[in-house]
């Protein structure tokens, strides 16, 4: 008798262990019309008597399923969600097991998307327009920008970098002088960031000009996954020094009256040049 009872208990235990509850967890996308959707885009049938619980306490909760909440869905054998454990904090996103994959409800059969096929050819050079298919971890990358400026750059000048990430503020990032012709800036940007930038001398009237003397399109940098990246640039001319006769355009500064003597601040009353 005892042996039979023991065998029955063991059998029940084995059966119980063999059929654990199937579940997945993730972030909710929607909960409507008898379905629950996760951010993977997968939708599952919800049982009419589904239990809505708190994921931590496993007790009924006042939270209602809605987008952005995290949830663990427990399935019955028919593939219906019978329990939904809600959480405001992130739950791990689980890959779909083959069993759960069968529970996904979709009216149309899935077929491959050729646009998602890996690129097999192309250039190694990353630009702002060919990053499709690239993956970026988003890790902070130390970028060292070093720029060579034209020799006409005044020695007391400051050089800055204006970027689209700072609304083209012409003084957003000040560079440090390395020597007479070079300036350096070290900044962190997350990988995957596409930066558009121009060098300036403090205003967009004194922004850099191309080798052709004209306005230039912003420089572009795609931040790839790396620990450190060095960027070397060359400024050929500055807009405000790209003028003739040494005239510098400066906002709110009256042009200096024509003075044939190149000494604008001699003492008052000092004799001016005259013939002998």
């Amino acid at each position: 008798m005892m042996r039979r009872l023991l065998a029955l208990v063991c059998t029940l235990a084995v059966l119980g262990a063999a059929a654990p509850a199937v579940s997945i967890s993730g972030q909710l996308l929607a909960y409507q019309q008898g379905y629950v959707f996760f951010t993977s885009g997968n939708g599952f049938h919800v049982a009419p008597n589904v239990r809505i619980l708190d994921d931590t306490t496993k007790a009924p909760t006042t939270l209602q399923p809605r987008p952005r909440l995290f949830a663990r869905a427990v399935f019955n054998e028919a593939g219906q969600v019978v329990e939904l454990d809600l959480s405001k904090t992130a739950l791990p996103l689980q890959p779909l097991s083959p069993l759960v994959q069968k529970y996904v409800v979709a009216a149309s059969p899935s077929y491959p998307n050729p646009e998602l096929a890996p690129k097999t050819s192309g250039t190694n050079e990353l630009t702002a327009t060919n990053t499709a298919g690239m993956t970026f971890s988003g890790k902070p990358v130390l970028i060292v920008f070093e720029v060579e400026v034209p020799p006409s750059t005044p020695f007391n000048t400051q050089v800055y970098m204006a970027t689209d990430t700072s609304g083209w503020n012409p003084q957003a990032f000040r560079m440090e002088r390395v020597d007479a012709l070079h300036f350096r800036l070290v900044q962190r940007f997350r990988s995957g960031t596409i930066i558009h930038y121009l060098y300036t001398r403090g205003s967009l009237q004194s922004e850099e000009r191309s080798a052709s003397g004209l306005d230039m399109p912003p420089r572009t940098l795609v931040v790839t996954n790396a620990d450190v990246r060095a960027v070397n640039d060359h400024v050929y001319a500055w807009a405000d020094l790209n003028t003739v006769n040494g005239t510098r355009i400066q906002p709110d500064v009256q042009p200096t009256p024509f003075n044939p003597a190149p000494f604008p601040n001699l003492p008052v009353g000092f004799p001016t040049p005259h013939p002998r």
Partner: peptide, 17 residues
């Protein structure tokens, strides 16, 4: 209004420092 485009033309300014 917040501009986040890549065109510096709209970022041009005319004010002194």
């Amino acid at each position: 209004y917040i501009y986040f485009g890549t065109n510096p033309d709209l970022g041009q300014n005319s004010l002194a420092g």
